[in-house]
């Protein structure tokens, strides 16, 4: 996961909450770069936005790049597992990449890595 920020082509910057999502789609892989904090407050918009992406790029797998996500609590686990289930029912895959130490702890604790691979 060494893509420069400039490569992300869709900037979802109209979001009003504490999250911004930048997206790149290439070779049947959607990479969504989450920027900010993912908590219950930002979860709903994040969930809706990721669902739109999943629907738009029908044959693509999804990589959530978390390198610019500074905070996530268990509300984020709900968002990630929900999207994973959606993709899996379509035979598509989902990955997470570059979580910071705090986010890595929350994801390990919840058993997320037993179903979703960290790149």
């Amino acid at each position: 996961m060494k893509q420069a920020l400039a490569e992300y082509v869709i900037d979802h910057s109209e979001r009003k909450d504490s999250m911004q999502i930048k997206v790149k789609q290439q070779d049947n892989v959607i990479t969504a770069l989450l920027c900010g904090e993912l908590d219950h407050h930002s979860a709903q918009e994040t969930r809706e936005y990721l669902d739109k992406l999943i629907a738009k790029f029908r044959n693509s797998d999804l990589v959530l790049d978390l390198k610019n996500l500074s905070f996530m609590d268990s509300s984020g686990i709900g968002v990630i597992i929900g999207r994973y289930k959606k993709l899996k029912s379509d035979g598509r895959r989902m990955y997470v990449a570059n979580p910071n130490r705090q986010i890595d702890k929350v994801m390990s604790l919840s058993g997320l890595y037993s179903i979703i691979k960290k790149l």
Binding site: A43, D73, S74, S75, I77, G78, V79, L109, S110
Partner: peptide, 15 residues
């Protein structure tokens, strides 16, 4: 509605 994962207290107890 999957707004929470059911892990809130587990996170508190662990951290």
């Amino acid at each position: 509605d999957e707004s929470r994962s059911g892990m809130g207290f587990t996170v508190m107890e662990t951290f």
